[in-house]
């Protein structure tokens, strides 16, 4: 169940989801870019202009906050609100995934296509 105050931030875009996920621990912008690319298996590529704008917007809406610097880089981390938004988003993904799992027809089709047992 979505907590009060997080609804207006949901659903997150894929890019924002990976940015917040990466900022559960303190990180600077370029580390966020690399992590998003890696953990999304290359499906989410963040260009610097896009990331800069996203970080600024997330900071304005208080989902992340600056916690320090690394040379000229700003280091950010999620706030408690940001954490809660992330949890609520993950909960939504769980529901979405469960719905897919229950569609056995779709699931077996994927299994055959991928040629592996999921």
């Amino acid at each position: 169940m979505a907590q009060k105050g997080t609804d207006k931030h949901l659903p997150l875009t894929e890019a924002t989801y990976y940015i917040l996920l990466s900022l559960v621990t303190p990180n600077h912008g370029y580390a966020v870019m690399q992590e998003a690319d890696e953990v999304s298996q290359g499906t989410v590529r963040l260009a610097p202009g896009t990331l800069y704008g996203a970080l600024t917007a997330l900071e304005t809406s208080k989902l992340i906050t600056m916690v320090g610097t690394d040379g000229r880089r700003k280091v950010y981390q999620v706030t408690e609100l940001g954490r809660q938004v992330l949890r609520d988003q993950i909960h939504r993904y769980q529901i979405m995934l469960e719905n897919a799992v229950n569609q056995s027809e779709l699931w077996s089709a994927i299994t055959i296509e991928e040629g592996e047992i999921l």
């Binding site: 912008g29 870019m33 260009a47 610097p48 990331l51 800069y52 040379g71 880089r73 700003k74």
Partner: peptide
């Protein structure tokens, strides 16, 4: 070549340029 337009405050300039530099720009 790419042109950006941000309307940055002076205090944000360093980290902005650094992010682009880190990304190879």
């Amino acid at each position: 070549y790419r042109l950006d337009f941000q309307g940055l405050k002076a205090k944000d300039r360093d980290s902005y340029y650094q992010l682009f530099a880190d990304a190879g720009w």
